[in-house]
Design a protein around this nucleic acid. Structure first.
Lengths: 142, 142
DNA sequence: ATTTGCACTTGCAATTTGCAAGCAAATTTA
DNA sequence: TAAATTTGCTTGCAAATTGCAAGTGCAAAT
């Protein structure tokens, strides 16, 4: 994989160099809310990421310190992908995307309550979910 | 341009179908904070977008109701691109990206004060800037 | 012992990107 | 008023990226 030379010093541009594509944030989503943590978990997501693209994105996210790969406690055949603190800190961004989407598109019923809760008190939501994620990402088991 | 078939019903995935690439949010940034509003303005941004990519992104953003093209009041040779309310509502997302970036990367000095202000009271910042943008986008002149 | 699962890699065709050039209409300059 | 420049694109083409299918090597289950 090529060294990602940054296009400018703009923080937005630098951030997009890290996760500005159609797939990266979906992987983060799966790690945050989907209870997914292995290569095959991500492959099975409904958007249907291609296996080589998944490999490339996982590598990029790991190189950028957003996720980390570790041994799976249950099996040597599996790897466990986890969000780093830097990855967990993407939560406010993802939350705001959901909120934007909720305003302009259809929201699946299962998500409505969560988004409503998030909108009611964003800070509270972020703090609470962040705490849960920190805990989850340091657990030995999934 | 192809009809963007959506990959899933996930709001995050749908949102990424709209602005999930390396360039779209930079155009939005230029419209929000860069005082840019014409094709050539966007071309001149330091990231150096290719002219055909710019044309394609502008078309996509317009098709998705995020921006709109109108006649430039000063010249028939120019077009004026503006954020729609839907586009202005991307502000919280962009703000959170800046805040994330501020935590993990270098922040240009000129932006530090603004980010600090935004972090101090996000809601207030969003409301204030939104108001300014609504005003700016309905003005006759730039 | 064989099959299945997991995490990839590889090959290749199709799509997208990026660069350079071109172009028509509007505007500015000489 | 004629020529040069600006503006907002389009086009051609090479290079890079994507997506699909198949393959690989190791681990684990049957």
């Amino acid at each position: 994989m090529k060294t990602e030379k940054k296009r400018s010093d703009c923080p937005l541009s630098c951030s997009l160099d890290v996760f500005g594509d159609k797939w990266s944030l979906l992987i983060i989503r799966d790690l945050m809310f989907g209870n997914k943590c292995t290569y095959n978990d991500f492959l099975k997501s409904e958007e249907g990421i291609a296996t080589n693209i998944l490999a490339s994105r996982l590598k990029g996210l790991e190189e950028n310190g957003v996720i980390e790969k570790s041994a799976h406690p249950d099996s040597k055949a599996k790897n466990l992908y986890k969000l780093t603190p830097k990855g967990i800190d993407l939560l406010p961004i993802i939350m705001e995307i959901y909120i934007w989407s909720d305003k302009y598109y259809e929201m699946p019923a299962e998500l409505k309550a969560t988004i409503k809760e998030a909108k009611k008190d964003k800070d509270k939501f972020v703090k609470q979910v962040t705490k849960e994620l920190k805990t989850k990402m340091t657990e030995k088991k999934t």
